[in-house]
Design a binder for these strands. Structure first.
Lengths: 150, 150
DNA sequence: TCCAAAACAGGAATGGTTATTGGTCGAGTA
DNA sequence: TACTCGACCAATAACCATTCCTGTTTTGGA
């Protein structure tokens, strides 16, 4: 059995993670811990496949389905968030703070766009629709500096 | 051979459609015309499958792949637009005017949200990233009035 | 009318994701 | 310690939207 001793530095603090697991009723298993560590090691906005490959390096027995399920659990209890660009695999992020990401249609790289204030767009939308608004996500695509030159 | 005599009323006028096809080099075939008619008949924001079923009613020989390709061509030459919500099939729209749509996570219904001004969000994003911004889409989800009661 | 290019039908293949199944592990309890 | 129960896991099959492939048909231009 491989041991996962790493600590999550970028995302929620260790205490929060334990709290969220305890409150949710889910168990913080070694596989779920491994997925968290892999997210940290990957940095940025890895896909499920990225996470799977990192986890598998340390524990080849972990199945892809387990990673999918672990990521779903981690998102459900609020330790990570997911983002989805059309035609591409879902990506995950340890960064819980609301922020804007842009994806390069050339190489697939994802970067944060700082300093853009969305204001109370959510409230404005809610004001103009009878729907009960749950989720407003801004999806941004473009070409990164490298791909502009290529 | 089924004849497609319908005229597109909601989307681009007939002349525009012909122009766009001529300029693009693509041919306005009976299948592509049928797809346009189906989009009009479906109204709202049909999925590829929706369009396929309508087209098939009139001409059972049309293949699903053809509908996919026809929709891609129609989008490429600027006669229709597509929208994509995560985990759901792509939806198409004859309405070329920029507008905001919300999707019900309960029943899948899509409605327009009127009166929301996005301002120059695109410009603001471009100002804050070295990426060359091509596309900014606001994805909104919620519960429609009916599903709120359900 | 003839020909080359484009478009099509039908169906197989792909890729991301989810569901199923049978087995394992661990906490709580007698 | 032995038992029980449920959560969890690995492996794999299934799913679904979409794309690709192949042979055939249609189209527009010479």
């Amino acid at each position: 059995m491989v041991e996962y001793l790493g600590r999550v530095m970028i995302g929620a603090p260790e205490g929060d993670i334990r709290d969220k697991f305890r409150r949710s009723g889910y168990t913080l298993t070694s596989q779920r811990r491994a997925v968290l560590d892999a997210l940290e090691e990957a940095g940025g906005h890895p896909s499920t496949e990225d996470v799977y490959l990192i986890v598998k390096r340390k524990n080849p027995r972990v199945a892809l389905g387990t990673v999918y399920q672990a990521l779903a659990v981690l998102e459900e209890i609020g330790i990570i968030t997911s983002k989805h660009w059309a035609e591409t695999p879902t990506r995950y992020d340890l960064n819980l703070r609301p922020h804007l990401d842009i994806r390069c249609t050339g190489c697939g790289a994802v970067s944060e766009v700082p300093g853009v204030a969305l204001g109370d767009l959510g409230a404005e939308i809610q004001h103009n629709t009878p729907y009960e608004v749950h989720n407003t996500t801004l999806v941004v695509e473009g070409l990164c500096p490298t791909c502009q030159r290529g």
